[in-house]
Nucleic acid binder design. Sequence first.
RNA 1: GCCGAAGUGGCGGAAUUGGUAGACGCGCUGGACUCAAAAUCCAGUUUGGCUCAAACCAAGUGCCGGUUCGAGUCCGGCCUUCGGUACCA
Length: 822
Amino acid sequence: MKYPFSEVEDKWVKRWEERKIHKTNLDDLKKKIYTLVMFSYPSGSKLHCGHWYNYGPTDSWARFKKLQGFSVFEPMGYDAFGLPAENNAIKTGVHPYDSTMNNIKDIREMLKRMGCMYDWDSELMTCVPEYYKWNQWLFLQLYKRGLAYKKEAPVNWDPVDQTVLANEQVLPDGTAERSGAKVEKRMLSQWFFKITDYAEELLDGLDKIDWPEKTKTMQKNWIGKSFGTEAQFKIDGHKDIITVFTTRPDTLFGVTYVVLAPENPLVQKLVTEDNKAAIDEYIDTVKHFSEIERTSTVKEKTGVFTGAYAINPVNNQRVPIWVADYVLASYGTGCVMAVPAHDERDFDFAKKYDLPIIKVILQDGTNEEDELTAAFTEAGTMINSGQFNGLNSDDGIDKITDYLIEKEIGDRKVNYRLRDWLISRQRYWGTPIPVVYCEHCGEVPVNEEDLPVILPYDVEFKPNGGSPLLKCEDFINTTCPKCGGKAKREPDTMDTFVDSSWYYFRYLNPKYDKGMFDVELAKKWVPVDMYVGGAEHATMHLLYARFIHKFIRDIGMINCDEPFTKLIHQGTITNQGAKMSKSKGNVVNPDDFISVYGADVFRMYLMFMGQYDLGGDWSDKGIVGVERFVQRIYTICENHKDLASEVSSVEKLEISKLNDAEKNVYRKINQSLSKYEKEIDNFRFNTTIALLMEALNIIHDNINGCSKEVQLYVLERFIAMVSPVGPHLGEECWEILGFDKSIFEEPKWFIVDEAALIADSVIIPIQINGKLRAKIEVAIDCEESEVKAIVHADEKVKSYTDGMTIVKEIYVKNKIYNIVVK
RNA sequence: GCCGAAGUGGCGGAAUUGGUAGACGCGCUGGACUCAAAAUCCAGUUUGGCUCAAACCAAGUGCCGGUUCGAGUCCGGCCUUCGGUACCA
């Protein structure tokens, strides 16, 4: 009979829901596993292949853990705020709330068709006041402790649309994606979270978590800790001092100019009359470059002389002060000492503007007179450096820094590349920032008891000049929480990464209204044991979440240090070598396959395609193979209907009492069980499916020669292994075999009979001079002396060894026998 | 440029971490069943040589070299593809 996947899948989805089989009892903490995939972003109403690839296999892992007896919590929700919904609204006129809610409705239905064991009572979405209220509360806690603050920061301004753009809306050539206008930089006062206070701990904590090395390295580089020296340069004829940061104080004698970032306030102070016009023009030009253009290494460096001079603190050399956009205002001190001989950027710049190049570090094996064709950036021996001549770079770094400290013109300094987290968005579809501006009291945070600050529904969100909420009179006009006088609300909303930085706490009780989350439950269930999601979140979401977690710990609401103990990234499923996207028109729609093959087949095929973390190129070539596999499983169970009511289950069988067919299946099922546990536990789903297919082949060939007792022994184990990867199929087969309870309602796992893993005999390949020449069958664990006799009695071996001298013989027990002849 | 991953049959991919390369699946070939087809089942399938066939021989995991009794796996030097990153002083 053909496997009626459609009826079967409907039946089990319904039954799981009716009987709340996937409800996790959070108070029951036998052995807890909190497993989570990054929640879905409902910007469209469809789930694509990537979602299935992310959610399906992870759910199979979770189901396996459940069968093993763990108390597994697997929730699902929606990252519902954000730009795509707002952009869609601008384009179509459909309100973001309406489109998002509609999309969530559709996505929820599709998620249910996947057959995952989500606990739907824990479902959450971020765009409702019950959720975003706590973003606001979190903001106030950060604010109270000085970790939320306001400062001027540049935004991408589209002069045609009169609106602020996100970085991803700016094309690489610096024009706006929508209007095509040249994007400008504009300074706006914006809110920041002080993640840099946690830089050191965010770095240290990486050692304690089981994450892919690659991801940890990315975070490490992103935090970018560097040890260096700050040195002070006097300015000729000025009181002001220029402080530079360098990791190479050993090259200090090689400084031939100093460079300030265009935004550095010192520029205006020290520029001379003659050069003012040129400098102003330069700064104006720079403003029109996008971040991407400005920091492109391909772009030729440009700069302008200020007319002022600085004094090198170690040799009193007078060096010109330039302004150039290759120096960033946001890193270090916004000024650098330029050493063209030993820094690539300075070298290029000096060549272009004909500035002197002084060699102060000598590369081993070269001469002082040799001309530099490129900057020498490695360590070497110091020259042209006064009393420091002859030192190697490492010593020089220490000695020169000590010298600067002694003269009180410098110090050791640690810098981080990490910058504070800018959370202000000049957008409508997000969490309102809970701050008001009073005519008398200035900036005042909203009182906690007045939360949430509700995001109004009726708002003109089409681009019209600034934050959309600015134009919403009912929202923007309010009273001051302090003095009761007239005040205006903050019109900006929060970055959606705030929403996702703590959602894993909220899942435990999304309706909780006494606080941000249920602290007692969180202490039992957090951290998340298994977190699965795309590698593209390595430095944003995953770093923000770690930061917020540590903050929440510091205000006493949780006692662990890290949110996600183990992290796995799924690979990307491409189509014809390219990422799937609507614009390329290469999106594979899962529905097309589910309607033909069913959800289980589609899930299993995605798992079978290849290594989970590598992803792969989509092809439907092999899906029929999985379909046949499913059909064969179904047929074999149908042929043994109600077996469980005819004979009873046994834990173990005596191998010596079994006939050959029984031995074959008994061994195979135990070997498979043992291997299965290792493979699926490590997210190796492709080999998990393969080993099940292999087992089925053996079962198929031998089952008719087995007693009913053995048949049940084998089939119940086999179906238990199928259930996590094909949950509907597994449940159906379990029922067909005659078990009356759902396998996930009464989780069942089996202990491997270790005795069955050991074969009686083993085939030993015989190599002669490293080439395979023969094979012999010997008893397991056979000693060398015994094997040797058998090997040398072999006719084939004899033909290769006769008349030759045996130089050496190597025997690896149960593995191989190698003879070296001459 | 730098960092990371990958490169194995016609195709997707396995390989106990140094021990029979090609598991499992797709496709293909032949056979059984059928009036016939589909479905299903059985057998075969790295390439080349020699064979009616089996047996056998040789080559073979991106390229060149090395270590080892033995290398897809380790080492040195390249090539290609895909991710990530982008002047951090």
